[in-house]
Simulated assay, not measured.
Amino acid sequence: MKTTLLGAALLIAAGLIPAVGSAADAKELKIATEAGYPPFEYRNPNGQLEGFDIDIGNEVCKRLNRTCVWIDQSFDSLIPGLQARKFDLANSTMTATEARKKVIDFSTPMYIVPVKLMVKKGSGLEPTAESLKGKRVGVQQGTTMETYARKHWAPKGVEVVSYPSYTNAYVDVTAGRLDATFQEAQSAVEGFLNKPEGADYELAAMMLDDPILNEPIAMGIRKGNALKADVDKVLKAMLADGTIQGYAKKYFAEGLIRFPAQ
């Protein structure tokens, strides 16, 4: 899509095209995200994109001398969008699972985040099929949490309810329509627990150690796209020089994110 100067200015003001470096004449790099997942990707009160993944993506564009064009769309449409060549990268806290690797490529791993169950204080609920039997648990569509819950919990009497974003799930938690939600721990903290409506809720004590929930987060790339080599090189450099770890300090409490060995 061609963009007029006025149109570009409006998009920059909206946070869809971050103004990075001297990239006015640089080739565009289209990156898709689902901006309803703080602190990874979200919109600030002015409607601009912010978050850990957004910072990483903007720096990748800067180091590649490309102009970032951010595309905000639902998480479960990211892989089809990559395959349809609607954008170059998907950067939205996407776990590099074996199933996804069959249909898209992934960048070098960027980070790993722990997954936890969020429950009402005093409920005693734990992330096990036995504890959750007969309960309703909210997950986001297309996530590894949904995959895990449908594989391990749903067959044993747990009702797994999928949502386009966790924002909707948190509304149903407070309304009593859900007994728990299942997500990356930091997302629950930033998206709900740190807000007044989250005062009566907490993360369940038990940490899940299933391999499917401990696979690294990476950027999704269309299979065969030569861009992968350049993105991998930049991300490895950003991990080696501490850039990504520095961004993490802006958003995460101690122990709520890990990084791949260098």
Rank of each mutant, 00 (worst) to 15 (best):
D53R: 07
F182S: 02
L178T: 04
K86F: 14
A90C: 05
E146P: 00
G255Y: 13
S131G: 06
E215P: 01
V20Q: 12
L132G: 01
E126V: 13
A26G: 01
V113I: 09
L11R: 10
K228V: 04
V160D: 12
D209T: 14
D88P: 00
I112Q: 06
L89G: 00
F192I: 05
A248C: 06
A185G: 02
Y111T: 11
M207R: 07
N65P: 01
N91M: 07
D76A: 07
L16F: 12
T3P: 00
P18W: 14
Y251N: 05
T33E: 10
P114C: 04
N44F: 06
D76L: 03
V171S: 06
T243P: 00
E159H: 08
F252N: 02
R63D: 15
I79Y: 08
E197T: 11
Y163F: 15
S165I: 05
I217V: 12
M238G: 01
K102F: 05
E130R: 08
I79K: 03
V234P: 00
A205T: 11
N214W: 05
Y201G: 01
G15H: 12
V234M: 06
G51V: 07
L6W: 14
F252E: 12
R66S: 09
A218G: 01
A226H: 10
Y170P: 00
L29N: 09
V115H: 07
S162E: 15
N168L: 15
Q186G: 00
S92W: 11
P216K: 06
S107D: 04
F106C: 03
T128C: 00
V158K: 04
I244W: 13
L227A: 07
N46C: 02
R43H: 11
E28I: 08
M219L: 12
W153V: 04
T93M: 09
A90F: 09
C68K: 10
T95L: 04
A175H: 12
P260A: 09
R100Y: 11
G224T: 07
L49D: 13
V160F: 08
W70L: 15
A35Q: 08
F52L: 06
P114I: 03
I104N: 08
T128N: 01
G57Y: 10
G224M: 09
F40S: 06
G7C: 01
G47T: 08
A240T: 11
F52S: 08
S123W: 09
K86T: 07
V158I: 06
N58G: 01
A237E: 15
L11I: 04
A188Q: 13
A14Y: 13
D241K: 11
D210A: 08
L239Y: 15
V69T: 10
K30C: 02
Y37G: 02
Q245P: 00
